[in-house]
Design a protein around this nucleic acid. Structure first.
Lengths: 172, 172
DNA sequence: TGATTGATGTCAGTGTATGTCATGACTAAA
DNA sequence: TTTAGTCATGACATACACTGACATCAATCA
């Protein structure tokens, strides 16, 4: 993160990362499948976290409600780590390859949420639609939260955007 | 496409592609920014097409209706090229890097649709939400259409999934 | 005719990523 | 205490993607 912040992602070589870590390049590639993955190591625990909340939501909750609860919790998680999140996102924002990696992590997350919904008995295509809708709301909320000031409440933005999505899809 | 189909994407070197095309590697990289881009050269015209339909939709149409019309038209476009689409998708499906590229192309498409909506006077976050919802419906419809038989009507699947999205977000 | 431009080739490099084998630390069994 | 096995790391070699600089050649224009 330091090196990527100092010189930018592309300008930083794996050799430099390895040197600062006091290891060899080869060792770097034993821990990270590629140069980008360093910034996404938290994705799998985030997935577990999300799936856990969807699975544990009250049985009578509609799919979109279970997803909304999970996304709002993730928002709280990020809010508690705002500084780090900002730093990380400013690196990702300046590099297309990193954005690609971020998108596929979000897609994986989407698939995991859909699967969790299916385990709750939700059928297709509702499960996938609810999952996609939830991640869409997350993306848009995240952008607004990042570009806003410190005081804006991320999970509140999420809830507002879920409401707005309902209005957009129905017109009422 | 032939080479990627024969040996797989990773196993195909740029040297091989260049040789089969009767050119040098250097020339390949003058036409394509990287080895993946070959499979996505149509993305920009697809974007123009989509944006054109959103911009040209009846003034009284709600944002989501304008987007739905555009997505359904794109579905028709793909349906007319089913064989090619299947071949292309089977290559993309076997390689993560290609999926990453596909996702960022879809994200670019989403941004372009949102921008077209804003030019129609739609405000944020509605514009982005409608665009994301539309692309989400497209993704899920595409998957179903690809995995189904030849006779299923892609644009009809799209419309059904837009209806289902409304049900999912509202519960009625 | 000569100058200009655009497409391509040639060549030499950098950096990411991977395979293979060696080494030393630590652990469990004999 | 020895022996064997496992694990993390290093050392080395290599492939391949991608880039910059300059050369060549043909078509076109002044």
């Amino acid at each position: 993160m330091d090196l990527y912040g100092e010189h930018g992602f592309e300008q930083t070589t794996v050799a430099e990362i390895a040197e600062r870590a006091g290891l060899t390049e080869r060792t770097f590639f034993r821990y990270f499948v590629d140069k980008r993955e360093v910034l996404f190591s938290g994705a799998s625990s985030l997935e577990q976290f999300l799936v856990g909340i969807v699975a544990g939501a009250p049985e009578q909750d509609r799919p979109i409600e279970a997803v909304a609860t999970a996304i709002a919790s993730v928002a709280d998680f990020f809010q508690e780590r705002r500084e780090f999140t900002l730093r990380r996102q400013s690196v990702i924002g300046t590099n297309t390859e990193l954005q690609e990696r971020e998108l596929i992590k979000l897609a994986t997350l989407t698939a995991a949420i859909a699967e969790a919904l299916r385990r709750r008995g939700v059928r297709e295509p509702s499960a996938s639609l609810a999952a996609e809708a939830g991640i869409a709301v997350f993306k848009i909320s995240f952008e607004r939260w990042i570009s806003g000031n410190d005081e804006s409440n991320f999970s509140q933005i999420v809830h507002e955007h879920f409401d707005e999505l309902r209005v957009v899809t129905t017109g009422c």
